[in-house]
């Protein structure tokens, strides 16, 4: 017996399983419908957003020129380079301090929004919704508002990062508190521990690693946000970035972008190591 199929055998096989090969008509219709709808909206978007072929060609032409002009990255002079590095330090300081302060100030908010701490449904609902609102406003918008309050400078940027993270941390804490295991707490009580012992040995070991790793993660992502906060005058490297782009100093722009890339990857690396040290490999 040969293993090869004859042509008639093959046709027979195909005929018998035609349904399985074609797939169900309903799924196919749904697939086509979804793709058509997505594509339709996409094309509608392209026409509404004034995208035209010639505009794209001209734009990419310009972009090519800019990229050529950007190379090699060059800060211009040593004095400029020092200013840029200082601004970078300011950026990292804004992200770091903003996140830390948000993490501290969000503590009472977290308790307020936890279902098992505050039983009142109205308080719970209000706390949750107001945190969602705060979180829904972009850091850049908060920066604009804080600039009106404390004036231009990195302090406004720090406050902006802090405010927009308050909501996020509050939500995080309330979830951590709600899902904390009661058993370690009861265990501490059963061997004669007081209220302070309960929190110190029953609750904190449970929530601290989670919170610490989240704080690290937020410092990472806030470094990215704080690089742009300077665009509205709230300190950091963003001010110089916007300035060099608007004055078409492309070599300085690429130098700044390079600085940001290096700083962000250094912080990613550091926080990865720290997270590893705090919670071990499993949750990284």
């Amino acid at each position: 017996m040969s293993l090869a199929m004859s042509a008639t055998e093959r046709d027979d096989l195909v005929n018998r399983h035609q349904g399985a090969i074609d797939g169900s008509r309903k799924t196919r219709l749904i697939t086509i419908g979804v793709i058509a709808a997505l594509l339709g909206l996409f094309l509608y978007g392209l026409t509404t957003l004034e995208v035209s072929f010639w505009k794209l060609i001209a734009g990419f032409g310009n972009l090519g020129t800019f990229v050529v002009l950007m190379l090699p990255p060059d800060p211009g002079s040593l004095a400029r380079a020092i200013i840029f590095v200082k601004a970078l330090f300011e950026t990292i300081a804004i992200a770091f301090l903003g996140t830390i302060l948000a993490a501290i100030f969000a503590f009472p908010l977290g308790f307020l929004a936890a279902k098992n701490v505050v039983a009142n449904r109205i308080v719970h609902f209000l706390a949750r919704r107001s945190m969602d609102t705060v979180r829904g406003v972009d850091p850049l918008i908060w920066a604009l508002i804080w600039v009106n309050v404390v004036g231009l400078g990195p302090f406004a940027g720090m406050l902006a990062i802090m405010t927009s993270d308050l909501g996020a941390f509050g939500k995080l804490y309330s979830e951590a508190i709600e899902s904390a295991d009661r058993k370690p707490v009861e265990g501490v009580t059963s061997v004669g521990g007081g209220k302070a012992h309960e929190i110190r040995f029953g609750l904190i070991p449970q929530v601290l690693p989670v919170i610490a790793s989240q704080v690290l993660y937020y410092i990472e992502s806030n470094t990215r946000s704080s690089t742009i906060i300077g665009i509205v005058g709230a300190g950091g490297i963003g001010l110089y970035l916007a300035e060099t782009i608007r004055t078409l100093e492309w070599q300085q722009t690429s130098f700044l972008i390079l600085l940001i890339l290096v700083a962000v990857s250094a912080i990613d690396f550091l926080s990865g190591k720290l997270r590893f040290a705090i919670i071990g490999k499993r949750a990284v």
């Binding site: 001209a58 972009l63 990215r224 742009i228 782009i245």
Partner: peptide, 13 residues
């Protein structure tokens, strides 16, 4: 950050 791309693209496009 996307807004940096946007700044550059605004000048190009």
């Amino acid at each position: 950050p996307e807004i940096v791309f946007a700044l550059i693209f605004v000048i190009a496009f």
